[in-house]
């Protein structure tokens, strides 16, 4: 009976909360999920899923170098994240190689550099926690950094919410009416790098792209209004984080993987049962009974 004690809903919810590291993990992961979920609406509509993957992998050497030099890891990650995008743009412009190929080869190159650096520097860097995340082992300085970066991204996205929507929808119109498209492009990239930095603590470098695209894709299936899409995206991201952490606690599973898997299940649910865009089109089903 002991084994299945978590089946009691009360115990399931409250037991983990008695642990300090679990409270911290739940709070931090929800915050990170909210930030990534917010950004996710823009990335899915702009078609930047591959870009998200590229930036999140490219931050790897930055994290390693920053750890080695004793700098805040977010700084190193940010520099390499933005650097990879600049390099992608440069190679694309100066060669005949297609964009998706350039993206693929640049981010894998950066990622490989990160792995080589880890083996060379031989500090106390925990490769596993970088690759797969460690929301349960988050340190106090990491908490401060995460809160600071998250607030920064949320403030930037809130201020330029409508401009970014216009930029994703019709950049030519934005340019025609004198809105600085160049600025918006780099603003979105900056937010992407920063979100990747905080996201990798929760689910690690390899899976952080899921945090950046899955909630947005789920929300896209559920609504035709941009504002609703953002709200649904943020909520589904937070709920997935909570579910993932609880399930991983009780079943002793990898936390990052559990969070992303929870997101994937929510997406599949929307894919099947979304009122208008799901494959079973519940709306039509109910309409038939009227």
């Amino acid at each position: 009976m002991e084994l299945f004690s978590f089946l009691n809903l009360d115990t399931f919810i409250t037991d983990p909360l008695t642990h300090d590291f679990m409270r911290k993990a739940l709070l931090m992961s929800s915050l990170v999920a909210a930030v990534c979920g917010f950004l996710s609406s823009y990335l899915t509509l702009k078609g930047w899923a591959l870009m998200g993957d590229a930036v999140s992998h490219s931050v790897m050497p930055g994290v390693v170098v920053a750890y080695a030099l004793g700098l805040p890891f977010s700084l190193g990650a940010f520099i390499f994240g933005v650097g990879s995008v600049a390099l992608i743009g440069f190679i694309k412009q100066k060669s005949r190689v297609k964009e998706d190929t350039v993206i693929g080869l640049v981010f894998t190159g950066f990622f490989a550099l990160g792995i080589v650096l880890v083996s060379k520097i031989k500090s106390n860097i925990d490769l596993h926690s970088i690759l797969f995340g460690s929301p349960l082992g988050i340190s106090l300085s990491d908490v401060k950094q995460t809160i600071f970066i998250s607030l920064l991204v949320v403030i930037l996205l809130s201020i330029f919410r409508k401009d970014l929507m216009l930029y994703c929808f019709d950049p030519r119109h934005a340019k025609t009416v004198g809105i600085n498209v160049f600025f918006l492009h780099y603003l979105l990239l900056t937010c992407l790098s920063l979100a990747a930095v905080v996201g990798l603590q929760s689910v690690g470098i390899i899976l952080v792209v899921a945090m950046l695209i899955t909630p947005g894709a789920t929300a896209y299936l559920l609504t035709d209004k941009f504002d609703n899409m953002t709200v649904i995206s943020v909520l589904s991201a937070i709920i997935s984080s909570l579910i993932g952490i609880y399930v991983s606690f009780w079943l002793d599973l990898e936390t990052g993987g559990s969070i992303v898997l929870a997101q994937t299940f929510i997406f599949l649910f929307a894919f099947l049962f979304a009122p208008r865009y799901g494959i079973f089109k519940l709306q039509k089903l109910f309409a038939g009974y009227k």
Partner: peptide, 27 residues
């Protein structure tokens, strides 16, 4: 003002007629 071709825009973008026309005022 630029009026794009129908193929030039993402018709699946979650946005209403009102919001598109309001974009004409953003500048």
């Amino acid at each position: 003002a630029y009026v794009p071709q129908n193929e030039g825009i993402d018709s699946q973008f979650p946005i209403s007629v009102w919001d598109v026309v309001m974009m004409g005022r953003y500048g």
